[in-house]
Amino acid sequence: MSVDQKQLDQLKQTLQADDYRMDVDVRGDSADVAIVAGPDACEECLVPKPLMQSMLGPVLGIEPASIRLVYPTDGPGADVTTS
């Protein structure tokens, strides 16, 4: 399995339109993905995490469940606003 760079870029552009940046770190059969908010990012505009994971799965070639996703609203140990 490998990363589909073209689709990944497209996804990054989509996020950029809401002023988010996405950092992807693929390691074997899992991945760490961090989404970082820019100054104009709208907190509510990120899709729910499970949807983001299902979008990232085929793009990264990794099982959605093995993608660790960090949203900007995930403070230290808290993600009460990610819903």
Binding site: P48, G77, A78, V80
Partner: peptide
């Protein structure tokens, strides 16, 4: 309201 969204999946 706290149970909506991802409460049951939350890291909290």
């Amino acid at each position: 309201p706290a149970s909506r969204g991802g409460a049951w999946q939350s890291t909290s």
